[in-house]
Amino acid sequence: MEPKPSRMHLQGQSAESSRQETELQHQQSHSSAIEFGTVEEMLRYDAAQVSPPATLAARLRDALANEPRRRPAWWRRWLPRRRKE
């Protein structure tokens, strides 16, 4: 696999005022600057912020519960099962 560029620079902006800690945290969370060296870095960062909805797993579990029990092909029943290594 070819290496792809991966470099992230995080730059935090220091708060100038000496307000309460909660306000400082709020300000940092909304105005901290992030620099991305490449588009791919930005997309990876974005992907890390996105989580699949919790309902997805539940929907899939319900759907799979209604799936007919899968049976392996007749010829596969005669083959030894592959193992993860």
């Binding site: 969370s29 901290s32 600057a33 992030i34 620099e35 991305f36 588009v39 930005m42 997309l43 974005d46």
Partner: peptide, 15 residues
């Protein structure tokens, strides 16, 4: 030049 983002909360929408 690097891509600089100030408003993280809107990054997803911008992307």
């Amino acid at each position: 030049s690097p891509l600089r983002v100030l408003e993280i909360k809107e990054l997803g929408q911008c992307i």
